[in-house]
Nucleic acid binder design. Sequence first.
DNA 1: CAGGTTGTTGGACAGTCGCGCAATATGGTC
DNA 2: GACCATATTGCGCGACTGTCCAACAACCTG
Lengths: 205, 205
Amino acid sequence: MVRMTPEHRRAAIVAAALAVARRKGLASTTVRDVAAEMGTSSGLVHHYFEHMDDVLAAAFELVAEEDLRQTAESMAATPYPAEALVRFFRAYAPAEADPAFQLWLDAWAEASRRPAIKATSRRLNVRWHALLEETIRRGTGTARFRCHDPSGAAWRILSLVDGLALQVVAHGTTISRAEAFAWAAETSERELGLPAGALTSGRTR
Amino acid sequence: MVRMTPEHRRAAIVAAALAVARRKGLASTTVRDVAAEMGTSSGLVHHYFEHMDDVLAAAFELVAEEDLRQTAESMAATPYPAEALVRFFRAYAPAEADPAFQLWLDAWAEASRRPAIKATSRRLNVRWHALLEETIRRGTGTARFRCHDPSGAAWRILSLVDGLALQVVAHGTTISRAEAFAWAAETSERELGLPAGALTSGRTR
DNA sequence: CAGGTTGTTGGACAGTCGCGCAATATGGTC
DNA sequence: GACCATATTGCGCGACTGTCCAACAACCTG
């Protein structure tokens, strides 16, 4: 019976939930699973979270936030918008059986049944969109992007990338990770009025 | 107590499961739901199916097959490839809280954990792709489509449409059904070398 | 009309879930 | 060392799930 500060215990609960969710999926992660993962009783979870949904949302948020932060950081490290886009695609293109992206699939499926997950998923998605939109706006200023609707373009690119990643993770071999990457770049070139190869040739400045 | 032949009863069970699944989603369709939908007892379901999973897999297959069939039929009813594409987008664009599309979200999330669902989901998805690819090929012949990679283009368009539909169904208000439709058309115009508005102006011939 | 095959019933069963609560153990404060 | 706030326990509750099975009833055959 190890006694923790509320702050640490909260973090421990979310971390345990995340570990279980990676293994079993978001939907079938239960209160008892989380407690067992920590080696504590199940009542403890409800002492810190009113609903199980909130625990799952927090666990999902943890991975999603971390991925977003890393990607944003990588994109901010180059002054060239085209190179930033390439880094975006690289970060987004999942491997087969990618546990992190699998959580996104779980979250999207669960969103309609669990309000907390829906809110978290939407919020994170909007931030990915904002990241993309800002890069596009930068590109129309300093680079040779041509785009009269950066917000819409960002949604179109984001949705494409989500759809491609979905194919890779859910279906395995219908399309490859390399194809997903190349196709995202190709469509974006057209979307942003860039010459063919501007995002795929390796010469992005 | 209506007595049916095994053949008919099996079909009735799957049909009932499909009706419930359309309403409540695959994951929360129970044996009792299916029995109530048929107006029979729950024991009957297990007299024909060993596991409830088998019923759900059959129901998912039926609904996916049926949607595909209807869309293909609608697309085949016009001689104009551009109009066929518009019908494709119209069929694919889901409403908010669309239980039928929710089935796809459930299937994609579950695919990595349930081989039967993965196989069905992949097979159906490939057929949606084939439907799109064939329409594009037709367009390069009889219409003014310009496309050197119909298969890749079909994957890009399908993935975009999946991603857009996902936003509508999972997140509700981030983007609207109308935007999803318009954006799918807009990107496809660029993808297929069509003039702007060729798929959205209502003049698709 | 009698008999047997089998489609169908309806409830029992064991398991799961999220959640709530009284009792208990712990660590910091006086 | 006594005390108190609270972190933690462990179980109970009601509702749900899939699965099983003995009894019942409908239809076909003779």
